[in-house]
């Protein structure tokens, strides 16, 4: 799995019980993904954890599509929350993790500009780059 290659652990969470998680995995998800879901499917009956993360919709009694990227120090490095009817883009999550890992491994000496993907140019923030980003980064690079 793509996330495993990046050393990323997945946790999913909804207000359903662990028993419903089992049934969903065994009866439906295992037909979509061979072998079923490998990561832990967490239960947040009552939405107390979702409330703390700001994703529990009290009117509907469910959690919205919140996705949080947490680094090895337990620090939130990015999040996205979508309305229930719109699904996530897994590729974008992978791209963000790759960018976050690059920045972390460079110990802050590199930054990923808009439109960055693995293999594309990074920026080296510092006094020499001030006012010179236009020389090394073009707006077209946000879209290619």
């Amino acid at each position: 799995m793509e996330f495993q290659k990046l050393g990323v652990e997945i946790l999913s969470m909804s207000i359903d019980s662990v028993f419903v998680h089992k049934m969903w995995n065994d009866n439906e998800l295992s037909k979509m993904v061979q072998g079923g879901v490998l990561f832990p499917m967490l239960s947040d009956a009552g939405g107390r954890v979702g409330k703390v993360f700001g994703v529990f919709d009290e009117d509907a009694g469910v959690e919205t599509r919140g996705r949080f990227i947490i680094d090895p120090d337990g620090v939130v490095q990015g999040y996205e929350v979508l309305t229930p009817a719109v699904g996530r883009n897994v590729e974008e999550s992978l791209r963000q993790i790759q960018a976050l890992q690059l920045v972390r491994n460079s110990k802050g000496t590199e930054a990923t500009p808009s439109g960055w993907k693995p293999g594309k140019t990074t920026l080296k923030p510092g006094p020499d780059l001030v006012g010179k980003v236009w020389e090394v980064w073009k707006t077209e690079m946000a879209f290619d």
């Binding site: 997945i10 049934m23 439906e28 994703v55 947490i70």
Partner: peptide
């Protein structure tokens, strides 16, 4: 039983969603 702090030292993606057996 899963505790988030047990994952310290690893990258974690935590995904919330409205419900099992829904459509998206």
């Amino acid at each position: 039983s899963v505790k988030l702090s047990e994952y310290l030292g690893k990258w974690v993606v935590l995904c919330f969603y409205p419900g099992d057996f829904t459509f998206v």
